[in-house]
């Protein structure tokens, strides 16, 4: 495979007697959109957690980013190295405004000076089309869609090389999902590799170049999206057995 940017080998996460992620291995190529699917509880978010160290790393196995092992590194150091993620649940800094959220993301994750970060934050605000009031109100007052926009924008403002999105389309309307689709393609064209966990299959199949399906913590299928969705094992995992 040419130019791998992420290489996960035998990643395992156990909680007591429960194995949430079981010897998962895969490689992501620089510049691609890599989709991750699976039923609820299949270990998708846990996989993101152990890759980013937030809030925990793997119990066993290794995660390489740009050829270097990152498992065991502090989570903030992983983010600063260019691996930036969003969360499935709403995440916000309720007392900070959108522009402040973007500024500190650019400073700490992107390593930008305060002035440069503020300039990039203003540019990102224009991009999400927040008006002056919304740019400066506490984030807790924003709508669900605006909070999602802000979470993605706060990752992008640090200019990451990999963007990891955990169910960004959940709770969005159809037109909002279409705009998200366009955004992901746009971001990807600018050179950012994307890992996308998504339950909205139309979005996932539309943008992903390759697809990984997890079930009960292990890899069920991997390959081109069109091939993966035709896999009987995948259909069974989602819909249940025939008997």
């Amino acid at each position: 495979m040419s130019d791998p940017i992420i290489d996960v080998r035998d990643a395992t996460k156990t909680f007591g007697g429960l194995t949430a992620v079981d010897r998962v291995s895969f490689t992501v190529t620089r510049g691609e959109i890599f989709g991750i699917a699976g039923p609820n509880g299949s270990g998708k978010s846990t996989l993101f957690n152990l890759m980013t160290g937030i809030p925990y790393g793997p119990t066993n196995g290794e995660v390489r980013f740009n050829g270097e092992r990152i498992d065991g590194r502090p989570p903030h150091a992983i983010a600063r190295s260019g691996l930036c993620r969003t969360f499935q649940k709403d995440a916000e800094f309720p007392d900070l405004s959108a522009i402040e959220t973007l500024q500190i993301s650019a400073v700490y994750s992107g390593g930008q000076s305060a002035g440069q970060a503020l300039e990039n934050a203003r540019r990102a605000i224009d991009r999400v089309q927040f008006d002056e009031a919304r740019a400066h109100m506490p984030s807790s007052e924003l709508s669900v869609y605006e909070k999602k926009q802000l979470m993605i924008a706060s990752a992008l403002v640090s200019e990451p090389s990999v963007l990891m999105l955990d169910e960004p389309a959940s709770g969005l309307t159809k037109p909002e999902i279409e705009r998200l689709d366009a955004l992901l393609v746009d971001v990807n064209k600018s050179g950012v590799t994307i890992l996308l966990i998504e339950h909205v299959l139309s979005l996932l199949l539309s943008v992903s170049e390759r697809l990984l399906v997890l079930n009960q913590g292990a890899i069920l299928a991997e390959g081109l999206p069109a091939d993966v969705v035709r896999d009987p094992a995948v259909a069974e995992a989602y819909l249940g057995g025939r008997d």
Binding site: F93, L96, Y108, S154
Partner: peptide, 23 residues
């Protein structure tokens, strides 16, 4: 300062703050 704002981020959402490069 950005440091001061990062304190509120740490106070309110540790995991999100760490995901944005804040120690």
């Amino acid at each position: 300062s950005p440091f001061g704002k990062s304190l509120k981020a740490v106070r309110d959402a540790e995991e999100y703050a760490a995901a944005r490069g804040i120690s």
